[in-house]
Simulated scan of single mutants.
Amino acid sequence: MSDTQIPTCRWGIVTTGLISSWFVADLMMPRTDAKASHIIQAIGSSTLQKSQDFAAKFLKDHPDQKPALYSSYQDVYNDPNVDCVYIGSPHGFHKQHCLEAISAGKNVLCEKAFTINAAEARELVAAARAKGTYLAEAMWLRHRPMVTDLRKLLYEENVIGNVFRTTSDFQMYVDVANLPPTSRYKNPSLGAGSMLDIGVYSLTWAILTLEPEAPGPREKPKIMAAQSFVDGIEVTTSLLLHYPDTGRQGVVTSTTERRRDESQIIATIDGTDGFIEVEGRVPSHPTSFTVYPKWGSDDKKPQGKKYDYSRPQQGFIYEADNTALDLAAGRKESTIMPLSETVRVMEIMDEVRRQGGTVYPVDQA
């Protein structure tokens, strides 16, 4: 890390798929509010050609970026100039790739879902702490400024009174029945199913809006869940979270059986004095939210106040900035998504799968 006014993080990118392309593209966009400076130091893929193609496509307008291009992930882990490894592989590979990076002494920011189950997550936490490396889950939704502002409105300004319910639904169409068994969307060994892939975002909206900041361990809500399957692969999950101390409820759903319009309400937070609608393309890509007063006696929707957070970047830049700040401060985990919270969310999803009937090979190991 540099000693300039804002920290610099030199990234090693592991895998060259869609999510890695989004991450790199976000980091390369010009900003006036940067909290950190980012360098793409290394790119690793299964072949050198893939790394070269990735760099040519996503760094072509950035001649100052001259990453080392590798034909393996291990070369990225071994690169002494890499400050932090970004792991963008499917979640079925996260445990392996994280352990390899940690073993090489590298700091790691790993995509969601962090692992297949909570046991794997706890194994990674233990490995990172034993090695003394930074480890964090890249749940980029939690790092967005709009989430910070929304939680302040909910629990400091109490703009809708006492929050009592949140609903969130993530829809994405995947033709599971006609996919080859090697597809990550159909391979149980790779964590196939809507819950780990997209349902974690709906779940995160519920957690973020139903749980105020509090000292000590977070309360684990009671869970009631059901899942549906196509060819043995979970395609629809519905779960109800219930917080006994407050009576709050979260209605969380995900499906790969249909797709909504591009613009939609992705979450609704209900309070005793009003409600908030979060807008965006899907729950992972919020762009705004609108605060409404309580419904009147007629059927007309009340006038609301909209808070717009649209900007060119998709939102990965916030987690990248915060990771750089964590590393510069010498922290070993995220202040936004601490490892205890990552494990707790994995435990919740384990229970959802237990009730719903989804079993992965690693669960029986």
Rank of each mutant, 00 (worst) to 15 (best):
M1W: 04
T4W: 06
I6F: 11
I6V: 15
W11L: 12
S20V: 08
S20Q: 14
S21A: 15
F23Y: 13
V24S: 08
A25C: 05
A34P: 08
S37Y: 08
H38V: 05
I39N: 05
I39S: 03
I39W: 03
I40T: 10
I43F: 05
Q49I: 03
S51R: 00
S51E: 06
F54G: 01
F54V: 02
A56G: 08
K60F: 11
H62V: 13
D64Y: 13
S71H: 06
D75L: 13
Y77I: 04
D79Y: 01
D79R: 02
D83T: 13
S89Y: 12
K95T: 07
L99W: 00
C110A: 15
A113N: 06
I116P: 04
I116W: 01
A118K: 00
A121Y: 05
A121S: 14
L124Q: 12
A128D: 04
K131I: 05
E137M: 12
M139H: 14
L141G: 09
P145I: 11
V147A: 10
L154I: 09
E156G: 01
E157G: 02
N158M: 01
N158E: 11
V159K: 11
F170L: 05
M172A: 11
V174R: 04
V176M: 00
L179K: 08
P181L: 07
K186V: 02
G193R: 05
S194W: 02
S194L: 04
I198G: 02
Y201P: 01
T204A: 07
L210H: 08
L210Y: 05
E211P: 02
E211K: 07
P217V: 07
V230A: 06
G232V: 06
E234S: 14
T237L: 03
L240K: 11
L241K: 02
Q249K: 15
V251G: 01
S254Q: 03
T255H: 02
E257P: 00
E257K: 14
R258N: 12
D261A: 15
E262D: 15
I265M: 08
T268K: 14
D270K: 09
G271S: 02
G274N: 09
R281V: 07
T290W: 08
Y292M: 07
P293Y: 07
K294E: 12
G296P: 07
S297D: 15
S297K: 14
K301M: 13
P302H: 12
D308L: 06
Y309M: 06
R311C: 08
R311W: 05
P312F: 10
G315Y: 08
Y318Q: 10
D326I: 07
L327K: 10
L327M: 09
A328R: 10
A329H: 06
G330M: 10
R331Q: 13
K332N: 09
L339T: 01
E341N: 13
E341L: 11
E341A: 05
M346E: 12
I348G: 10
I348A: 04
E351Q: 10
R354W: 07
R354L: 12
G356D: 01
G356Q: 02
P361V: 04
P361T: 00
Q364K: 15
Q364C: 11
